[in-house]
Amino acid sequence: MKLNFHKNHKLLFGVVFWGFIFLSLIIAVFPALWVQQENEPLPASEPMTELERKGMKVFINEGCVYCHTQQVRPITMDENWGRPSAPGDYARINRPSVWRQTPAVLGSERTGPDLTNIGKRQPSSVWHYMHLYNPRSVVKESIMPSYPWLFQVVENPPKDATVVSIPGEYGPSNGKIVPTKKAKALVAYLKSLKQVPMDAKPTAAQQAKADSVAAQAAKKKINGATIYANNCASCHQSDGQGVQGVFPAMAGDPVVTAEDATDHIRVVLYGLQGKTIAGTEYQGIMQPFGESLSDEEVAAVINHERTSWGNDAPTVTPEDVAKVRNNDELNKIQAEE
């Protein structure tokens, strides 16, 4: 046998076979092993609960990952979604059984929003149930599929059942909508998706990158309408009309149109729940935005609300927001409430 690729099939295909194994080892298998050894959940993170784990399974089985990423890249355009993702963020995601491999939650396409921090951005179960039952009931322009098979329609739900109220046109013609176990698990999973702080001190290079990212962010134009669309419209709606019985309208709302904006600022900074407005009790929960929005941004979004949809109330400045934020008295009252 000559050493000639053209004539010696053992040599040719031997090199092809072993050569590829060699390359695969250095580019895939060894790096994976190495990453696996370094695999360490972030200290501040908590293990998933049984229910959240079940929810992740629903998330994977329904193929949500084909439209939703859970991956924040270390570039300016991804800042809305959170801090850059780190390997530790995924360390608790593991192989569920011998039959299936570790779920691919990073995703490869962003047809829908990134969900890395959806638990922070949207902590209201009611919103999630409505959205899953029919996304268009809360986001009119949405193209996300409805998942009615995660719900049951029952005539007379038992007293302790969670009943999801859906605006008439989107709901069933009669009966009430009750989430199944799967829907509950899925929503528990979605609500658990929150980044926790990285504890380790950033390396100099990371710090430099973070600084430049922050500097660029500061330069970014602050636009109340965009902030509203990103943070508020999914509940209060882009036309400011809210969703009846669940999320109050901003148009004509007494707090939004009040001369004194202090309450308005407080609601945005600290969130709200279970308040009765003009005789209606609202089911939804509003999350606090004090951590995610700066004083400038809070002021911008408040002014947007105060001057849109026919509202014509006095506007506020970032300094007004800072005053409320720094006012310990008010904070204490807030905590007691």
């Binding site: 963020d89 995601i93 593991n94 570790t102």
Partner: peptide, 13 residues
């Protein structure tokens, strides 16, 4: 199985 397990090691593969 073996080398590809949790989180990112799976992503490498």
């Amino acid at each position: 199985p073996g080398y590809q397990q949790d989180g990112i090691s799976q992503t490498v593969i």
